[in-house]
Nucleic acid binder design. Sequence first.
DNA 1: GTTACTGCAAAGATTTTGCACCTAT
DNA 2: ATAGGTGCAAAATCTTTGCAGTAAC
Lengths: 144, 144
Amino acid sequence: MRTETSRFKDYIETKGLYFTPERQCIAEEVFSNHKHLDAEELLKILKTKGSKASRATVYRTLDLLVESGLVDKIDLGDGRAAYEHTAGHTHHDHLICIKCGSVEEFEEPLIEQLQDWACEKAGFKATGHNLNIYGYCRSCNATQ
Amino acid sequence: MRTETSRFKDYIETKGLYFTPERQCIAEEVFSNHKHLDAEELLKILKTKGSKASRATVYRTLDLLVESGLVDKIDLGDGRAAYEHTAGHTHHDHLICIKCGSVEEFEEPLIEQLQDWACEKAGFKATGHNLNIYGYCRSCNATQ
DNA sequence: GTTACTGCAAAGATTTTGCACCTAT
DNA sequence: ATAGGTGCAAAATCTTTGCAGTAAC
């Protein structure tokens, strides 16, 4: 079985780039972590695991991961971005709590289809999209 | 006929705040402009029109306008936000060209409905949402 | 006369970049 | 050997904030 990390290695090498230890560490962490990570969290986790990858390298590698299609970038709406690996789940969108910051996922295949349709009508060639709903999650709503 | 500006004045005064000349200028510009403005563009336009409203006041007033419900904030996905007045058009989403930066609108009432439904299922109380599709617009796609 | 608003400049926050040194191939 | 990568710190962006003075009510 090919791991996501090995797919990333292939992607990197096909482009004639080097698969460095830093890139490996960062990729493995993103692929093994099932949460939505932002760059700063990722950097912190890497530090606790002994990686010395710098902030700059984290950002540069996240860009490569997104480019490879193995990772999605989610715009959090407050200027930050979160990242999540794409393997093992169909596309989904996000419910972002403006009180506690939690990010919940939801799936609605028909929405995807309607989006494709809208693009077609507009002659627009989509490369990605971002649907975030902001508000209060179930628990924050209860204690609000 | 009540103008949007007068509605904003009501909103401001109901909250016990002051309807200052700066707030009036900013509101009028946003309401009369039918494009998606970001804060910097808005500031530039205001300057050419002789308003001395500062960047800080522009941001503060835009927040009030969004709060009032008369203006929508659209997260552009690159850290910036654009603003557009809500009057006279139903809710719509955006096709953002990653080459030329153009923002095109599309409307898909069923998407809105599906979103509401997803929120309901998750016990999520939505206060707003943002659906952006990134890619190449018709003309950039042609010359790409 | 209060209470709130404004401009300014500094501070914050996130992300990007220039550069000298280092490393994978 | 060479093309590319890394860390660092500075820069770039967009937005927010503290404060002293000013204006709306």
